[in-house]
Amino acid sequence: MTTTESSPPVIEARGLTKSFGDVQALSDLSLSVNAGQVVGLLGPNGAGKTTAIKMMTTLTTLDEGSAAVSGFDVTTRPNEVRQLIGLAGQSAAVDEKLTARENLELFGRLYKIPRHERRRRVEDLIEQFDMAEFADRPAGTYSGGERRRLDVVAALIANPLALFLDEPTTGLDPRSRADLWDAISMLAAQGTAIVLTTQYLEEADRLADDILIIDHGKVVASGTPETLKRQLNRDVLEVRVATEDDVATVLSVIGEIDGVAADVAGRRVGIPVGDGASRSLELLRAIQDGGVAITDFQLRRPTLDDVFLVLTGSLAVDTEEGAA
């Protein structure tokens, strides 16, 4: 596979649309991924990310739109598409009774990799992804990180042109996550076209060349991480107060200033502040002048929740109880 400026995209989707019954799961999603590029689909649970992945990997039918890998249409040429892609789905799609080595052997056989080649490939991957320690235990005994690693590695067995990773690092510890990030970057550097879904802004930021932010099945923003950040990256001033009454006072004080939308969770108020420090000082002073005792405050970088608050005017993820 040679990569030149004029190469057509490896993965191309146009107007992907899908509903399940009355629920519009995905509407009009388009993307294009060149060799060596990573496109991130960023959004909360239920946003339609998995549906998009399933449509592009021949697992689910398209209501409208089209998708193709290397020019092969997923609807009319699924058998060719399947030879070119690797998929690591959201549920760890490996056989729990088989060991990592056996799982890789099985998937290698099903990709029709010749025996000699297959053996070598399995051993290479086990070594490269540091799996030797658990490669001969049944996958059912693995930790979350080990299982996820096997799941992703299983998608690499046939060295796919196009790799689809559905929330590859969800539930991983920070160390495993960092390892997987390195691996994904390396695959992209080797020329693999990658579509990755994630709930983590940081992950999309770190890995993706292009990001599509999806909410309720619709693309609400897209662009390079830099573009999106210029558009979205607002620091948030988080203020904690002692009583519910104080929360109300804080909201009325900041509402008087410029009517910014604040995000309230318990006795914590998150206020988007465009230009960080000086703006924060101004607000803190105003709050204090309003007679509120501030118990704690911090200036933090935006989370996915903040991005969604700005983009859609509503919170993306219902994690109020876990937010404190």
């Binding site: 399947r82 998929l87 549920s91 799609a93 998937f107 099903l110 990709y111 029709k112």
Partner: peptide, 13 residues
């Protein structure tokens, strides 16, 4: 019920 079926369905088999 397991994810392995999704894997099979995505394979050229």
């Amino acid at each position: 019920a397991e994810g392995v079926t999704d894997r099979f369905r995505s394979l050229p088999m």
